[in-house]
């Protein structure tokens, strides 16, 4: 039975040993759920800011924003796990990878361990910066241009801007760590060479990183950041 620390320190060995036992999705699911819950808390805090922006519009709007932010962040992580595995699974077919989807899902789930740390640090950063954000208050839904302008003001608030920059950098660092684990996961789950597994994993991950970097410079908020 491999130790959990091996996922971090020796993922190649960890997944090689895991391949000897039956597929076990429970622990990876727990890891993903923990990531989702922490991310949802951050999402809830972000939703609270947005709800304050809509407070002047009318009763009920704030609650809708809060629930949708929480649920969006939580299910976003689950979707990222399943859809991400699907993308990697399909890409590995280019290199004639073999092995079931469930095994790939299990190993990619193990690779979410760094994302737990990322979510925790992201939450701490949010707790530090969000109270300093000045939230614009919308008075009406009549004019879309006014709404867009208010959202832009929220996203370009100095505190919000710093939060987004820090969380983006942290997200990049931890996604690279996860990618490192996912390479070994895909290598064993889909029986690929290390080089091919690296290509399969790094292509989508680099696209994701580029999108985050673009977000920082363009000012458009990216999903999950």
């Amino acid at each position: 039975m491999p130790k959990i620390t091996d996922v971090i320190l020796s993922p190649d060995t960890f997944f090689a040993e895991k391949m000897q036992s039956a597929e076990e999705i429970r622990f990876p699911l727990i890891i993903v759920l923990i990531t989702g819950i922490i991310g949802a808390i951050t999402g809830y805090m972000m939703g609270e800011l947005t709800a304050r922006m809509f407070a002047g519009v009318g009763a009920g709007m704030g609650e809708i924003v809060l629930v949708s932010s929480f649920a969006g962040a939580f299910f976003g992580v689950l979707l990222m796990w399943i859809a991400g595995t699907g993308i990697l699974y399909l890409l590995s077919m280019v290199f004639k990878g073999t092995g079931g989807f469930k095994r790939a899902l299990e190993f990619i789930g193990w690779g979410f361990i760094p994302q737990v740390f990322s979510a925790i640090i992201g939450l701490l950063v949010a707790l530090y910066y969000f109270p300093m954000v000045q939230v614009p208050v919308l008075r009406s839904f009549q004019d879309p241009a006014v709404m867009q302008s208010a959202i832009n003001h929220l996203m370009n608030d100095p505190s919000m801007l710093q939060y987004r920059q820090i969380s983006s950098i942290i997200s990049i660092i931890f996604i690279l760590w996860s990618a490192s684990i996912w390479i070994f996961g895909m290598k064993h789950a889909r029986k690929l060479s290390t080089k091919n597994a690296a290509i399969v994993v790094l292509v989508p991950v680099l696209i994701y990183i580029i999108s985050i970097v673009y977000t920082i410079f363009s000012g458009i908020p990216a999903p999950g950041v």
Binding site: I8, D12, T13, I121, I166, I170, I173, S180, F184, T194
Partner: peptide, 20 residues
């Protein structure tokens, strides 16, 4: 803090690849 985090995680990744 970010630099420190990057160094630590970089070290962990380097270690995990060296140990395979």
């Amino acid at each position: 803090l970010i630099i420190g985090l990057a160094v630590v995680i970089g070290g962990v990744i380097w270690y995990s690849w060296r140990k395979r």
